[in-house]
C-alpha cells in the first residue's frame, strides 16, 4: 500500500459506516453505536458476546459469503456486509 486510506468504508445492509484501517467489522459497528446485527432462533437481537470467535453470536454475510465471525474479520474498504437471519438448519 503506497499510503493508507484515511478510513475504511463499508456498508451494512446498504447503510455506509466508516472505521479505522485494521479494525474488525464488530469493532466498527460498536464504535458506530450499533450493538446488535444478528438474531437468535426466536428473533431476539444479538451482537458480540465472546469477542474471540468462540460463541458464533456475531455472524454476518460479507460480500456474499455467509457465516463470517464479525469479531474476527478485519474490514476491507468497500466490504458489503449484510446481516443474516437465523433460519432453521443454518448456523
Amino acid at each position: 500500500m503506497p499510503h493508507k486510506p484515511p478510513g475504511v468504508r463499508i456498508t451494512v445492509d446498504g447503510t455506509p459506516v466508516t472505521g479505522r484501517p485494521g479494525q474488525t467489522i464488530a469493532a466498527i459497528l460498536i464504535a458506530a453505536g450499533r450493538h446488535s446485527w444478528r438474531r437468535g432462533p426466536s428473533g431476539s437481537p444479538r451482537g458480540v458476546f465472546c469477542g474471540i470467535g468462540v460463541c458464533f453470536d456475531c455472524l454476518v454475510t460479507v460480500n456474499g459469503t455467509r457465516d463470517v465471525r464479525a469479531c474476527l474479520r478485519r474490514a476491507d474498504d468497500g466490504d458489503a456486509i449484510t446481516t443474516q437471519p437465523r433460519t432453521k438448519g443454518t448456523p
Binding site: 450493538h35 446488535s36 444479538r46 458480540v48 469477542g51
Partner: peptide, 21 residues
C-alpha cells in the same frame, strides 16, 4: 444475559486493547 451489550470481560478487553473501542 443474551441481550446485546452484555459481553464477556474478554470481549471488552479485546475491543479496548486491540481495536481502541
Amino acid at each position: 444475559w443474551e441481550l446485546p451489550g452484555v459481553v464477556t470481560a474478554g470481549a471488552a478487553q479485546v475491543l479496548a486493547k486491540g481495536e481502541r473501542v
